[in-house]
């Protein structure tokens, strides 16, 4: 059986979308990991499911539904945290379970659980349309631009929030922007790895790159390389082996992480 991956336009689209997402996920993931915000990515991923369900119910593109609902929840999470009535982590738990409950109700209204849901939970590049690719490209471009604009502030806040604030950096605003960008990236990543595996895409390449103990710029570069390699290799491997794409990508990332843990020189110094 001669299967050429590029004969299939859906595979080309999947690779295009995958590479864009692979580029953007670690760029934001590094700040989430260093700020101990990894759980926020996971919460927003679950929240996005409610958006997807809403999209399916209303007949609009589920990615847009996901963007809308995650962005709104971002505001809600920040509001709830700033009231100091609940702990930060508890506010995440409230939103995670609450939105999941909401999603389940919406899905049961929309003729119960169908096969479409499975592809949103675990990703399915087969379903990526050309319009999705454009949407992912444009929104990723916006995320990349905003990240570039606030890059120096984000690094400073991640390293030493108090000193950054004393230096006149609007830390609250920057924190909010970071979470809003996370909501966008989560929504964009759904077609590739699905809701349940998104935080892996943002976190594992970064955690792997951190093992090399290098400077910030170098660490970001390494995370990007690991991410892009895993996504391309994962999409191709899943195609030939007929496996779930999202699962394959995440397992490849985990394999790379384990390999790095074994061989990385733990005391290596310098850039």
């Amino acid at each position: 059986m001669d299967l050429n991956i590029f004969q299939y336009s859906f595979m080309v689209r999947g690779l295009e979308a995958g590479i864009i997402v692979a580029l953007i996920a670690p760029a934001i993931g590094i700040f989430l990991v260093l700020r101990r915000y990894s759980l926020i990515a996971d919460t927003l991923a679950h929240v996005s499911l409610a958006g997807i369900a809403l999209g399916l119910l209303l007949g609009i593109n589920p990615i847009y539904g996901a963007i809308g609902v995650t962005a709104l929840s971002t505001v809600g999470i920040e509001r709830l945290r700033s009231t100091n009535k609940v702990y930060g982590e508890s506010s995440l738990a409230l939103f995670l379970s609450g939105s999941l409950a909401f999603a389940v109700i919406l899905l049961s209204l929309a003729n119960g659980f169908n096969t479409g849901l499975f592809s949103y939970l675990f990703g399915s590049i087969v379903t990526v349309t050309q319009n999705d690719v454009y949407t992912i490209l444009i929104l990723s471009g916006i995320v990349a631009a905003v990240l570039a604009f606030f890059y120096k502030e984000l690094i400073y806040i991640s390293f030493d929030e108090e000193a950054a604030r004393a230096g006149g950096i609007p830390t609250r605003t920057i924190n909010f922007v970071l979470i809003l960008l996370t909501a966008l990236v989560v929504s964009l990543s759904i077609p590739i790895v699905g809701v349940l595996l998104i935080s892996a895409l943002m976190v594992i390449p970064v955690v792997s790159a951190l093992q090399f103990k290098r400077g910030f710029a170098t660490t970001v570069l390494y995370a990007e390389i690991i991410s892009i390699f895993s996504v391309i290799f994962g999409i191709i491997a899943s195609f030939y082996l007929n496996l779930s794409t999202g699962g394959t990508i995440v397992l490849i990332m985990l394999a790379i992480f384990s390999l790095i843990l074994l061989v990385a020189p733990g005391t290596k110094k310098g850039v």
Binding site: L34, K152, E153, I155, Y156, S158, F159, D160, E161, E162, A163, A164, G167, G168, I169, L210, K213, R214, G215, F216, A217, T218, T219, V271
Partner: peptide, 22 residues
Amino acid sequence: NFDPNFPATVKEVVLMGRTGRK
């Protein structure tokens, strides 16, 4: 305020001091 595993070189840390000025 300081995570000893933070991936930053000395120069990257000193450059942070320029952030507010910029």
